[in-house]
Design a protein around this nucleic acid. Structure first.
Lengths: 77, 77
DNA sequence: GTGTGACTTCTAGTCCGTA
DNA sequence: ATACGGACTAGAAGTCACA
């Protein structure tokens, strides 16, 4: 766990959408991390809403999941 | 100028949408920066697609403009 | 009112381990 | 396969002087 302070709403939406989309595709965090070229533990941390992820990595993850970056930020995914 | 390397597509969409939305509201970069509680030059730099902005600041700017964070990432805004 | 380079501070992001 | 901690490095955050 790295971040606690102010888990912004958007960050939490992203976390939930990321996890939901990943599981829908039957991917593990490890597998997703490898596709997105990010680290295993980092992806897990993002899914827990602990990280203030940057736009480039949002795009990386969105691409890895085959969805649009915008869709991962929506409240009602 | 800060960033050259790989201006990701999403970053550029965000940059364009941010600028377009701001101008539609008749705000200057300075004014938007003040509302979003960010620095003038930082906002300008983001609008030029030079910064790999994080999700928290995306939310800040989206709120300042009265739009959803997701809408600022869409290609056809 | 905006563009830009340089700069410092702080955290995003990596990698090791352990559970 | 996932969570979490510690320690580290890369890079985002944030500011300024000047154009």
């Amino acid at each position: 766990m790295k971040k606690k302070s102010t888990p912004s709403a958007t960050r939490l939406f992203f976390a939930r959408n990321l996890k939901a989309t990943r599981e829908r595709l039957g991917l593990s965090q490890e597998a997703l991390a490898e596709i997105a070229e990010l680290h295993r533990t980092y992806v897990g941390s993002v899914e827990r809403g602990e990280r203030n992820i940057s736009i480039d990595n949002i795009e990386c993850l969105a691409k890895a999941l085959g969805v649009s970056p915008a869709s991962l930020l929506e409240e009602s995914a």
